[in-house]
Simulated scan of single mutants.
Amino acid sequence: MVDLNEPIHVVSYDPAWAQMGHELIRDLSRQLVWASPDVEHIGSTSVPGLDAKPVIDVQVGCASAHIPAVVEAIQGLGCEPLGPAGVPGREYLRRRSAHPANVHVMERNGQLWKDNLLFRDFLIARPDLARRYARTKYEAADRASTLLAYSALKSHTIAEITTAARQAG
């Protein structure tokens, strides 16, 4: 099994991330046309102006019954499967080539699907919170140079922003 805990770094926002996300959505949609998936660019690279790890995150929503076959098909795009990777209800795949990406496969319109979109859309609508989140990301990256520790250090801020988004919603 491949180690999930990889080195990370946060960089300044790159406007090319939007196009890279669009291209990955296109490629996944073509590869998975038989599953009628919904594919969305999520995570920090989907928020204009937000500094992030230079890795494009997308989520693929499909019927629960299709998830195993979808995961298998995504491997054809050079992604390695890592199972739920600590997040129940998600299958996580990653690609570390010229355009690094994370693909999160889950039930379409399930709570995880909705929360990821809510978080993204709330940060887009609230640049003040996006700036706060960016500070949290840099602080976490300064204290931890690997994914699992970095993720743990910023989890409280993510939970606070998600709660605020639900209350506003």
Score class of each variant (00 low, 15 high):
L147N: 06
Y150H: 13
A164H: 00
S145M: 14
L147I: 15
D121L: 09
T146D: 14
S145D: 13
R90F: 00
K154S: 06
G78N: 01
G86V: 07
D14V: 01
G78A: 03
A65E: 02
Y92V: 15
A125H: 06
E80V: 15
R96K: 12
N116W: 07
Y13H: 07
V10P: 02
G89V: 09
N5G: 03
H22V: 10
I42K: 04
D128M: 14
A16W: 07
L118G: 01
T146E: 15
T163L: 10
L93M: 10
V47Y: 11
A85T: 02
A16G: 03
A63V: 15
A164V: 11
G110Y: 12
L148W: 10
E23R: 09
I74C: 01
R131N: 10
A130Q: 12
A159W: 02
A144E: 04
R30Q: 07
R96I: 02
Y150T: 15
L123T: 03
V10R: 02
A52Q: 01
G61D: 04
P37S: 10
G49N: 01
A69T: 11
A16N: 05
G61P: 00
V47I: 12
A165Y: 00
R95C: 06
P37V: 13
S36Y: 00
R131H: 10
S155L: 13
W113V: 05
I158Q: 00
H9F: 11
A98C: 01
V70A: 03
I8N: 00
I161D: 01
A159T: 04
D128W: 05
P88H: 06
A134Q: 07
H22L: 10
W17M: 03
L28W: 14
E72V: 11
K137S: 07
R108P: 00
H66Y: 03
Q31V: 09
L24M: 12
A73H: 04
T45L: 05
S64Q: 08
G86H: 09
S145W: 14
H9Q: 05
R126H: 13
H22G: 01
L147W: 11
R132I: 14
P84E: 11
P15C: 03
L129R: 15
L148Y: 07
P84N: 10
P7V: 10
A144K: 07
H99E: 11
L50Y: 07
N116P: 01
V58L: 09
G86A: 11
L77V: 04
D142W: 12
A141I: 08
D128S: 12
E40A: 13
L112E: 13
V103T: 02
T163Q: 11
P100K: 15
G86C: 05
D38P: 00
L147R: 13
A152F: 06
T162E: 02
T162S: 03
V103S: 02
Y133P: 06
A159G: 01
A134D: 05
H41Q: 04
H99Q: 13
N5A: 10
Y138P: 15
R143D: 14
A159P: 00
A69C: 08
V58W: 13
Y13C: 05
A35V: 08
A168V: 15
S151F: 02
S155M: 12
G43D: 03
Q59L: 09
A73L: 15
V55I: 15
A18K: 06
S12V: 08
A144G: 02
D128N: 08
S29T: 14
H156V: 15
Q75K: 04
Y150I: 14
